[in-house]
Amino acid sequence: MWFTMRFLITGCEGQLGKAFISKLGLGINIKRLSKKEMDITDPIKIEQQIQSFQPDYVIHTAAYTAVDLSEKHPILALQVNAIGTLHLARACKKYGAKLVFFSSDYVFDGEKNTPYIESDRPNPKNNYGLSKWLAEEFILQTLPESYIIRTSWLFGDGENNFVNTIKKNAYKRKPLKVINDQIGSPTYTYDLVEACIPLLQLPFGIYHIRNDGICSWYSFAQTIYEECGTDPTLITPVTSKEYKTLAKRPSYSVLSMNKLKSSGTKLPRFWKEALCNFINKE
Rank of each mutant, 00 (worst) to 15 (best):
S34T: 15
A62E: 03
G110H: 07
G17R: 08
V163M: 01
E47N: 10
L143N: 14
S104D: 11
G110W: 06
I83Y: 13
K45Q: 14
L140W: 08
Q54S: 14
I214Q: 15
K272L: 12
K45V: 06
S240V: 08
A221S: 15
M1E: 10
C12G: 00
D42L: 02
C276T: 12
V178F: 01
D56E: 09
L69V: 09
F270N: 15
H60I: 07
K266N: 07
K93W: 01
K272C: 05
S34N: 03
L76P: 00
N180W: 09
Q222S: 07
G156K: 10
I179C: 06
C196K: 05
I214C: 12
K45E: 13
Y147S: 12
D56T: 10
R121H: 10
K248L: 08
P237A: 07
P144G: 11
I183L: 15
T61I: 06
H87N: 15
L154M: 13
F3S: 11
P43S: 11
Q182G: 06
G110L: 10
N123F: 09
S103H: 04
G96L: 04
D157V: 02
L134E: 09
R269M: 10
F20I: 14
Q79C: 02
E282Y: 07
D68F: 08
I117G: 00
A63Q: 10
V163H: 00
K241T: 13
G158L: 06
L199E: 04
C12S: 14
T142F: 12
F101Q: 12
S52P: 03
W271K: 08
T189G: 00
I44G: 08
L143A: 09
M1C: 04
L202N: 09
Q201S: 13
Q79V: 00
Q49S: 13
G158C: 02
S251W: 01
F20K: 14
V163F: 02
A62W: 05
L267Y: 03
S251D: 03
L260K: 06
S152T: 13
T151K: 06
E194C: 01
I117Y: 08
F20W: 15
K112L: 11
K261C: 02
K259I: 03
L202R: 14
N211P: 02
E13D: 13
N113A: 09
I139G: 10
I28N: 07
F101R: 03
E273S: 11
E226L: 13
A89I: 10
P115L: 06
T233K: 15
S146D: 08
L88T: 11
A97N: 08
P250S: 06
D231K: 12
E242I: 12
F155W: 10
Y95D: 02
E37A: 07
E226N: 03
E159F: 04
Q141G: 08
P175C: 07
F138H: 15
I44H: 11
L246T: 02
T187N: 06
T239A: 07
K125A: 01
L76Y: 03
S119G: 02
V193S: 07
C215T: 15
L86F: 14
